[in-house]
Design a protein around this nucleic acid. Structure first.
Lengths: 204, 204
DNA sequence: AACGATACGGAGCGCTGTTCCGCTTTGCAA
DNA sequence: TTGCAAAGCGGAACAGCGCTCCGTATCGTT
């Protein structure tokens, strides 16, 4: 915990301490604004909340994506780290995959509007997309491979497409009580199962 | 076929013929703009393309949703009508469901940005959401019920959630070669299948 | 204390959607 | 044919957004 968390360059480390303080304030303000108004909260609002000018916010976080990445970095890391752990603690790789996807889904549906912004439509969010996916796709691939090796799922599905599928399914979650993103994600994952023979060696 | 297609009121029927002509022009211009720039094409551009002022566009189509609905009404109708037809022509209800979902998916992925706007996030598009879904959900329900009755899928899934799930999966299709919306939709639908026994009519 | 580097604030630009109202066109009626 | 409401039109103008830019304030070092 300190100056060591960099990566996007956003949290790298300004030298002057007012700059450093502002960065923290900004991060907190952004987190609060994201909760209240979603990740698309107006930049002006975030700046106002932090009590700084617009210039400051853009100097520290050149793009909104950088800000979002910085705010959620810890949670993304936690999610990524949970993958291998689940693989060890779960009865089968497929169970681990299911649970991990559940973690990811929970993360997305509880962050108002985050899923919507994970799409690479807008070049503005390209770096956000890339950042999240770079961190999580390898984990997903690992789980997928393990489950495929174990004969529980059909092979040939890449982590990237699954992650994007799940991300997409989470868009707008919570805006309509008739739509339950988690249910649909579960359906998608169920679709991965081997159609017949169930072929799992120890399907318990 | 002509003046009879109303519903949103957008195509109802202005009395003066200049108004009527403008409405047609606007519809064509919008369709063209949607192809070129997606359904979020700036209103000004659409107006300019049609050679009319902004007031005109807003008078005929008070909201962008109305315009989109009007542009795609025919295709949505065609899709809706294909449902029952497929149910009759297909070997099993599940096959019909699969094919119909494929139709819907094709419709969405070929209409640049349409899927993204089908979400009820933005109150602006509420009427678009409602209009499309009102037309298609009953059809989907019918197919779902038929397949469930036939024992091919797990019961308990509503057309509305499936349609939204499919719609979501289609968001951003075509922006990333590594993401194939159709594949993910197929996975989702595969998830509906009964887990074991492959459920022939036997068990009903 | 003084001074250069660093960071700050917010006015301002450009681009959206949307409204509003003076002017034009239309079609009916005299 | 002509006159005249009423219906329709155009685009200036307003509001909200992201983002930039630069004169000014602050920091920390000499």
């Amino acid at each position: 915990m300190n100056a060591s968390d960099q990566g996007t360059g956003s949290t790298s480390g300004p030298k002057r301490k007012d700059a450093r303080r502002n960065q923290r304030t900004l991060l907190d303000a952004a987190a609060a604004a994201f909760v209240d108004a979603g990740v698309e909260a107006p930049v002006r609002d975030i700046a106002a909340r932090a009590g700084v000018g617009m210039g400051t916010i853009y100097r520290h976080f050149p793009t909104r994506a950088d800000l979002i990445i910085a705010v959620y970095r810890h949670q993304v890391d936690a999610c990524a780290e949970a993958g291998p752990a689940l693989l060890e603690s779960s009865p089968t790789p497929y169970a681990a995959l299911e649970e991990w996807i559940g973690l990811f889904t929970d993360f997305l549906v509880t962050k108002h509007g985050l899923a919507a912004v994970l799409q690479p439509d807008n070049p503005q969010f390209e770096t956000l997309h890339a950042s999240f996916l770079d961190r999580l796709v390898p984990v997903c691939d690992q789980l997928l491979d393990a489950a495929a090796d174990h004969g529980e799922i059909r092979p040939g599905y890449a982590g990237i497409e699954l992650m994007r599928g799940v991300g997409n399914l989470c868009i707008g979650a919570g805006t309509d009580p008739r739509y339950d993103a988690r249910r649909m994600v579960a359906l998608l994952i169920a679709g991965l199962r081997r159609p017949a023979g169930n072929g799992a060696p120890a399907d318990r």
